[in-house]
Nucleic acid binder design. Structure first.
Lengths: 335, 335
DNA sequence: TTGTACGCGTTATCAC
DNA sequence: GTGATAACGCGTACAA
């Protein structure tokens, strides 16, 4: 019933031209007060709502930014999205999200689908080789990369210093008296996980300890599985650095189940500082990457790029580097 | 630089008409194989990407659905979004999200901004009076309400049977031997919280017990604060039903801090079954509303409405009612 | 101040 | 099969 009412209908109902109707509705000042009222009244009665796509086409401006994440749920991404939401709100922008499900092809596909529907792109693709994206992604659109390794493809980006974070985690465990420190790694193809692994290895070298790396995939299940491996060996480690908080959480569950005391028998630290770390028992030490801030600041950066026409986008490609902050909680505090 | 390349550019480069170019790119069959190849080659070389808004305008079809939630982060909404994402993916739809921040005006505003940019709307507005929305929201757009009270404004919807869920929670605690059962309520203006409160009150009446209701706002902080109140009174309750899981979680933290044993001294149960309940210690009993499924099924419902042109949308406004399922974990298991 | 007419990038309907 | 051309709904020079 009733195809949606257009500006034309409103103009007709108000007895003015479509141009005047447009002006009145958009609050331009070159309209008689009387005309404005007539138009607004008509619009109200007809329940007129501007057609987004048409407006976007005419103004080549959507007031929407596209967000492409590996996934759009879970503690980690949820925090990212929150940051983006807050920033977007402040800038009067809307958000078109899409999950790439860890696939580069999907990410590119999503980006293509967003062309002409967003003013800029915020993408996080930690698994992607820089070259995989650089050529295919930017369709003359302002773009900011979140996470990933530094200076990825010369795109403006916000990255976490995963390497020094990992280094700090190891040093912390060492200071707490740990001498056999194991690591639960993230997905092999994940660039951030790779950096964290490097930091761990260098940290152990620095301390003169020998490393033990267990495979993982960033899920709590992987953390749980990893401790099963550890429990089966002759000697347990006395320190455990998980590449992210979810795996640290899974590890604590497994250890508690086995009656291992945390942090006395084994100290644990994660990475990211997602909310649930505070609710775990014991609360889990971690490295606060400022997930929320990453989202918010990325959006601000993108927003700025959009405003200035994204002129020399890559010129000012000053990749902001976020240095994670050590957060010590009960899971690793031994004194 | 270089204004984005259009279909016209591609057509010109391939030496065909814009119409043929369109056909070739959209895979229609009435094109010579040779023309198709020329067009595709040109498109590839020019890095052509279809303009979403223009396509939407021409086809009056966006392949996008708008999602309006009170918030777009946190465990609960994250799960909803996950469900929607899965459903959307299956239907080849994109998602335009917006948080209303608990404000009806904001929700309506968001919906207006989405007009002409989406094919349908998925909205959750638990604080909204049915009448507040029914008139202002549907701009000739297929719409499905998530949550809220049943049959809200005759719109097709997916609602949780909060009342019987709450009733079941109370019965469970009673069966476990609890005789002084307190309730931490949700926000007063929240319709779902109201239903849960009703269920609680009727449940206590049924058991012949006297109720104690503490105020809350669905945050863990509120749960924590509520137990401080309880700890200060002469006699502690021996059972606690929180209107949602986050408050139940906050309550367990407060109680553990005070050295109160769960579930021996006090049994606890929440509502919603968000992921974190499983990681808490002890794991928290709850009522599984199937948050994920609500998202997914809402989308499926909406998708169906869109396909069939939303003809008699409200005719088939068969509000699907989800009956929550009791999930007993350590926090309330006394035997 | 107001109205006319064109353009935004695509799709779809025609003739050819 | 292919190519003009009219929508789609709106903003906006430009002219009046």
């Amino acid at each position: 019933m009733a195809a949606s009412v257009t500006l034309n209908d409103v103009a007709k109902a108000a007895g003015v031209s479509i141009a005047s109707a447009s002006r009145a509705i958009n609050g331009l000042d070159n309209v008689t007060e009387e005309v404005r009222e007539r138009v607004l009244a008509a619009a109200g009665k007809l329940k007129y709502v501007p057609h987004g796509a048409a407006r976007a086409l005419a103004m080549s401006r959507t007031n929407t930014i596209g967000v492409i994440l590996p996934d759009i749920y879970g503690e980690f991404f949820s925090e990212i999205i929150r940051g983006i939401d807050v920033g977007a709100r402040a800038s009067g922008l809307h958000i078109l999200v899409s999950g790439s499900h860890g696939d580069v092809k999907e990410a590119v596909k999503a980006a293509r689908a967003m062309a002409g529907r967003v003013d800029g792109l915020l993408v996080m693709a930690p698994y992607a080789d820089a070259d995989d994206l650089s050529g295919k992604l930017p369709f003359n659109l302002p773009l900011v990369m979140m996470g990933g390794v530094g200076g990825q493809a010369d795109l403006p980006s916000l990255v976490v210093d995963n390497y020094s974070g990992a280094l700090e985690a190891v040093r912390h465990l060492h200071e707490q008296g740990c001498r056999r420190i194991a690591h639960i790694a993230g997905p092999e193809s994940n660039l951030e996980a790779q950096d964290r692994l490097r930091g761990y290895l260098d940290g152990l070298k620095e301390a003169g300890l020998s490393p033990q790396v267990l495979p993982g995939d960033f899920t709590d299940g992987a953390g749980y599985a990893a401790v099963q491996t550890l429990l089966a060996q002759e000697q347990m480690p006395d320190g455990l650095f998980a590449a992210n908080d979810m795996m640290a959480l899974g590890a604590t569950l497994g250890l508690r189940e086995a009656g291992v005391s945390i942090p006395d028998d084994i100290a644990i630290i994660g990475f990211d500082d997602i909310p649930v770390t505070r609710y775990a028992s014991p609360p889990i030490s971690t490295l606060r990457a400022g997930v929320f801030d990453i989202g918010r600041r990325s959006l601000e950066l993108l927003s700025a790029l959009i405003e200035r026409g994204s002129a020399e986008a890559s010129a000012s490609a000053a990749s902001l580097i976020v240095r994670p902050e050590l957060v010590v909680r009960a899971s690793s505090r031994r004194r």
